[in-house]
Amino acid sequence: MNIIKLDATSSTNDFLKDLLTKQFVENFTVIVAEHQTKGKGQMGSEWTVELGKNLTFSVLVRDLLLDIQGIFHLNVAVAVSIIEGLETFNIGGLAIKWPNDILAESKKIGGILIENSIKRNGEIFSIVGIGLNVNQERFENLPKAASLLSVTGRLFDKEAVMLAILNNLKRNLSLLQAKEYELLWQSYDSRLFKKGIPMPFEAGDSSHFMGIIQGVTPNGKLEVLLEDNSVKTFDIKEVKLLY
């Protein structure tokens, strides 16, 4: 495992993308930064962290996905790997909030941003960006944010946490390569936040409705049971969970 450590960079995902344009980069190369100045989240949102207290790292995944239809399988493998890695530190209340948030005790402790590119020869390169709040204590104006420290009262060795996640990721990517999708999806489904519980949602037009999460489709859409007993699927921009 090739791990490149940086003091600071604008974005570990961007650093890895830039590196790919300059040289050959071996599969599973990891870029980790003590400080990320322009971290990105889903749909362009910023991911900001306190200097030296949290984890921001990116992993190159190549020679894995055969077609664009299998991209969400990678999301599933990554989310499950983070949860499994954190479980080794006896952290309770862990869950995956669709599509790419990691929660502990119903508060966001981390997020995933996967950026994919298809080369002319058809090869798919995926850059898996992971941000995890580890030893940060304060989250001003962010009532739904937390860290491993704030939910457990314990300080953590950041590198040990990262290696636990990476070891699980390597194993789960092997399952993905072997097309053992069912095992990964079962693990993902069992950890899905608020599954089977009536809860409010906000639609893209800002209207509110009640529904019950049933699961996630293979292409990453959220399945929700509505009050009229119909099941509707939603894309990331079409619905927001209110909790």
Rank of each mutant, 00 (worst) to 15 (best):
R191D: 01
G122E: 11
T233E: 07
V231N: 11
K170S: 10
S10P: 01
W185Y: 10
I82M: 03
T56H: 14
R191Y: 04
E50Q: 13
F57H: 00
E223S: 15
A164S: 15
Y243Q: 09
V80G: 01
D63M: 05
N100R: 07
F15W: 12
A104R: 04
D228Q: 10
L242G: 04
V25H: 00
L183Y: 09
I124W: 02
F57C: 02
L173A: 07
N121H: 06
G92S: 15
K144H: 12
V61Q: 03
A145C: 13
E46V: 11
G52N: 11
Q36H: 03
G93F: 08
I197L: 07
N90I: 00
L60M: 05
G92M: 03
T9S: 14
L94V: 12
F139V: 06
L86C: 02
R191V: 03
S150E: 00
D18L: 14
R138P: 01
N2Q: 10
L20H: 00
V32T: 14
K38S: 12
N141Q: 14
Q42H: 07
V25T: 01
D205L: 00
L86D: 08
I83Q: 01
L148D: 00
G204W: 13
G131Q: 05
I83Y: 00
Q23Y: 12
S187W: 11
H73M: 10
M1T: 04
Q214C: 13
V239G: 03
S45V: 11
P200A: 09
S230Y: 08
D7L: 08
N168T: 02
L225N: 12
A77G: 12
I31L: 07
L94C: 07
K179S: 14
I4A: 03
Q69E: 13
K5P: 09
E123G: 01
N121T: 09
V78L: 11
E26A: 12
D189G: 09
